[in-house]
Design a binder for these strands. Structure first.
Length: 469
DNA sequence: CGACGGGACGC
DNA sequence: CGACGGGACGC
């Protein structure tokens, strides 16, 4: 299967949507098509389909361009035109891939005006629109957000009015957006669930093998939290909220206890951290979460001293519901975002870090480029993204920080060399929530600009060199 | 002593 | 009317 594609060359669909499928009079020959279509770009191949046995022209022609935008211009200009000695107009479409064939109703369904792009987590719909409008008239630009937290998921759809504009954006936008032509909307839910549960298994496994967290963040002796939330908040939404320490939640779901919810963390430190972050947080807007330690795993002396009595809990819940009613129901997502931001940025910064950190700084602007990167190692295990962001933003101009999948190392991208140097200077060797972190200057990534075979060869030969030396 | 992410839309 | 041939031993 792959053998065919790799040797296909000019008749393949690479780059995407660069091959035209043309229906027209059977009298047209290859030169008629060449004359009519050569001005739009570099034609790699023209194939006028003929009957295999009789040699009769079937009225079907494929034209492969070197670039998507060339095919787009040709399609938009030539569709419906009369060329050569023809008496009827030609119909120009984007050819489906060979595997797909004509059975799909691709002529109508194919969405060639919509791009799927990766976007910085702090980018807004307006900023997305303002960037991508330079390539043409936009139908809509929409960042996909988590329904519960309203946080960006880091990807977006941009739909243009014209295919050629989508093609221009596909080819010319900053490569950090990693554009692809969007697949049409589908249900497609089985694959998603498979992916989700497998990635959850990964979480679960790694959390089982974690060493105990150290005692910087108030080791107060409980690992279970009791949560009172609005009945309208479902388990999924709660899970996402308490995912502030994603690798540290033990178990997948909350046990239900007298209508309240429970979440259990791996260590008392993480439990205390999550309680601190989320207690009192309004979610949904107007409904205050109540998060309390649950001591029922522990000795009676401990629990009798601190565990709230059931009737007290009832009162607390009543108060929470009442205050929810008092608050206006319709706080905007922006207000929610702002409150979430406050909670994330004003909590005791010194409590969870072994060194004095500078105050949090705003992230770099959307349009800024990465000019310096830090390589980060966390031992014994990775820190959650919320924590990384809070720590690495303090030197200003932070673009992004992340850990690699299932590893304890990652990168921080900065828009300023000075910021990256400051981060290294201050953070290297520090301890955050019990994790010792190393912060180094990142090595250049092996050339990202070259195409496949060549770069693989380079990497192999350089590895071979170092092996031989 | 660990080195290059992520990816599908509540119609 | 209207959906897939021909080329061909390289680094």
């Amino acid at each position: 299967m792959a053998d065919r594609r790799s040797s296909m060359g000019s008749s393949s669909d690479d780059p995407p949507n660069s091959r035209l499928f043309i229906i027209g009079p059977k009298t047209l020959n290859e030169e008629d098509f060449r004359k009519a279509f050569e001005d739009f770009g570099t034609i790699e191949e023209i194939w006028v389909v003929k009957d295999r046995t009789t040699g009769e022209n079937k009225g079907v022609t494929y034209i492969k361009y070197s670039k998507t935008s060339e095919a787009a211009k040709a399609l938009e200009t030539m569709n419906g035109k009369i060329i050569g000695n023809g008496t009827r107009s030609i119909k120009v479409m984007i050819a489906a891939s060979r595997e797909q064939g004509s059975n799909e109703t691709l002529t109508k369904k194919k969405k060639i005006q919509r791009l799927f792009v990766m976007v910085p987590k702090n980018m807004t719909d307006t900023e997305l629109y303002d960037y991508f409008k330079q390539f043409g008239d936009i139908d809509y630009a929409s960042i996909i957000k988590d329904k519960a937290t309203r946080e960006s998921k880091g990807f977006a759809y941009v739909k243009y009015v014209k295919f050629s504009h989508a093609a221009a954006a596909f080819e010319q936008c900053d490569r950090k957006y990693k554009p692809v032509f969007a697949e049409p909307r589908k249900a497609n839910s089985s694959r998603n669930e498979e992916r989700f549960s497998s990635s959850f298994d990964g979480f679960h496994k790694s959390s089982m093998s974690l060493p105990p967290a150290p005692d910087h963040y108030g080791g107060e002796g409980y690992t279970k939290l009791m949560v009172i939330a609005s009945p309208n908040v479902n388990q999924d939404q709660l899970w996402k909220l308490f995912d502030v320490v994603p690798a540290q939640i033990r178990g997948r779901t909350y046990a239900s206890h007298k209508g309240n919810r429970e979440v259990i963390y791996n260590t008392p430190q993480w439990a205390a951290y999550a309680k601190d972050k989320l207690h009192g947080f309004e979610y949904p807007p107007g409904h205050r979460l109540i998060v309390r330690p649950e001591y029922d795993n522990l000795r009676p002396s401990f629990s009798s001293k601190d565990k709230p009595k059931p009737d007290i809990l009832q009162i607390a819940e009543t108060i929470a519901q009442a205050s929810s009613l008092i608050q206006a129901a319709g706080l905007s997502p922006d207000v929610l975002q702002a409150k979430l931001g406050i909670i994330q940025s004003t909590k005791e910064s010194e409590v969870y870090c072994s060194i004095k950190l500078p105050d949090p700084q705003p992230l770099a602007g959307i349009d800024e480029e990465t000019v310096a990167r830090c390589f980060i190692v966390c031992t014994p295990s990775a820190l959650p993204n919320t924590v990384l962001k809070d720590v690495f933003c303090r030197f200003g101009n932070l673009i992004d920080v992340y850990m690699l999948n299932n590893r304890n190392c990652g990168y921080a991208k900065y828009a300023s060399k000075q910021s990256a140097e400051d981060a290294i200077q201050t953070l290297h060797g520090a301890e955050v929530l019990g994790m010792r972190i190393k912060v180094l200057e990142a090595e250049e990534r092996p050339d990202a600009n070259r195409n496949g075979r060549e770069s693989i060869r380079r990497v192999l030969s350089s590895k071979m060199d170092s092996f031989l030396l």
